[in-house]
Design a protein around this nucleic acid. Structure first.
Length: 278
DNA sequence: AGGGAAGCCTGCGTGC
DNA sequence: TGCACGCAGGCTTCCC
């Protein structure tokens, strides 16, 4: 499940491989995954820059006529962007295949997605705000606009909502998914089911720090490979070795030894320690 | 306002 | 062995 640290890892690893390269052709193997909001471009595209906003990967392009375009990628659950040599046939569940040329050599950037939840949009311009969901995103949790005060306001905006549900609301904070939300709440000692109106200011401050810590640590370990996630070279992350609660229900808490419990918040399986998280 | 469910999807683990 | 079933969950939309 690619969340912010996984998308950031893909961004940096992919940028090292394809920034400055050209997209020579685009092959659609399954319809509806690549959504073109403009068909006026002339190939090849030059790949200018890879950016990220929340869980969205943003790829700035310039076409043959020097007109700007942007590829916006959301991997959802099982989406992957995999770079393959020219002689490698597209793997199963490849839905879009970009032929990428780097200094005379050709390779394929394959969008592979078993469950086909993910989408790729192509828009004119280099401004991701043309995408309505991106326009509505909350602050980047590792950016300067995400302050303890900002998180506190988000929590207070939803007084009757479980605090975990607020963390998963992308219009409040961009980039947290089930894994990092559970881990941040554990680090902060906060019960995921606690209603916003019962969260104290100092707890929001602690949660703010926990979110930043867990995301930075996740990026440092090149993401969490719990089930599907790999970067563009097929390499796994290692943060799964440091998880405290996600995927550990029924196992002992790393802090107090009590058995971790499972509940459901906002439709998602939620793991926590009854003793350490109040 | 918030929760729940449906829909989009396939693979995998489990129980019979 | 094989089959049915539930679960995994990001996001949108709809309904209560």
């Amino acid at each position: 499940m690619p969340e912010l640290p996984e998308v950031e890892t893909i961004r940096t690893s992919l940028a090292a491989l394809v920034a400055g390269a050209s997209i020579m052709s685009i092959e659609r193997l399954f319809p509806g995954i690549l959504i073109e909001k403009s068909e006026t471009y002339v190939l090849p595209f030059r790949i200018e820059k890879l950016r990220r906003r929340g869980k969205y990967l943003l790829i700035d392009l310039t076409d043959h006529n020097q007109n700007p375009f942007i590829l916006i990628v959301h991997l959802r659950m099982t989406g992957k962007l995999l770079l393959h040599d020219a002689d490698v046939p597209p793997p199963a569940h490849t839905h879009v295949r970009f032929a990428v040329g780097t200094s005379g050599k050709t390779a394929y950037l394959d969008y592979v997605d078993v469950r086909r939840f993910g989408r790729i949009w192509l828009f004119p311009g280099h401004d991701e705000h043309v995408h309505p969901t991106i326009r509505a995103l909350g602050p980047e949790p590792l950016g300067e606009w995400f302050t303890p005060e900002r998180l506190w306001q988000s929590i207070k905006r939803h007084p009757n909502q479980a605090v975990k549900a607020t963390l998963l609301t992308q219009t409040e904070i961009a980039g947290l998914g089930n894994i990092y939300a559970d881990e941040a709440l554990f680090l902060a000692g906060l019960r995921p089911t606690r209603k916003g109106k019962h969260v104290r200011k100092y707890e929001a401050v602690r949660l703010h720090q926990a979110i930043r810590d867990v995301l930075a640590l996740g990026i440092g370990h090149r993401g969490t490979s719990f089930r599907d996630y790999v970067n563009s070279l097929g390499q796994q992350g290692s943060f799964q070795q440091l998880l405290h609660v996600y995927g550990r229900s029924g196992q002992p808490c790393h802090t107090c030894g009590q058995t971790l419990e499972t509940t459901r918040v906002a439709g998602r399986t939620t793991r926590y320690c009854r003793h350490c998280q109040r």
